[in-house]
Amino acid sequence: MIDKFVHSVADALEGIKDGATILVGGFGAVGQANHLIDGLIDRGLRDLTVVANNAGYGQIGLARLLQLRRVRKIICSFPRIAGSTSFEDLYRAGEIELEVVPQGTLAERLRAAGAGIPAFFTATAAGTDLAKGKETREINGRSYVLENALYGDVALVEAWRADRWGNLVYRESGRNFNPVMATAAALTIVQTQHLAELGEIDPETIVTPGIFVNRVVHIPYGDPML
């Protein structure tokens, strides 16, 4: 019997090593697997590369991981922590490396990784500072930048409901990067608010089919924190 459920956050994170590249879903305070991120802290992991849209929220989860100096490099579109200057402080002190990626390029680099596409051309960032040092090409009279796929060792995903095969649905704007990151990592770990029996989630509405998911842990914490 296939059963991707594990009993604890510690079990869910088993095997992750220092220096790993971790894809972290979420946008603002919504749809971020904070309990799994706290688990990275508890595991004592360091020297991580984190891929996320923002640099966390408040003093929890990703923001705390950064503040504890566990992250060597962050790849994101908008490296700010709402309600805190702790990212800017780390950055100014030279204690964290930053790769700023336009939000759509970030999503597409992850999608490409999940789809087996090593690189692609995009008009985004052509003719700007963010294209410096990158290969560019004119195609049909327009300028494009070559961007590489972005692979994760691990993806941390937050779902609304999950079954034991790892089929997932999300809640409202909590979906954001989660389904894309789920496809782009060697090990995809999910925290879910709710459990479903196999067959209970309407097949027409499953957003992430279980093939992309390795482990699921049930964490019914309620609504996103402010």
Partner: peptide
């Protein structure tokens, strides 16, 4: 997207995608 303030962390969000797309 940026006033190129020295020492400030750059942040672009979706602006470059929207501008070309």
């Amino acid at each position: 997207w940026s006033t190129a303030t020295p020492g400030a962390a750059p942040a672009v969000g979706g602006a470059m995608d929207l501008a070309v797309g």
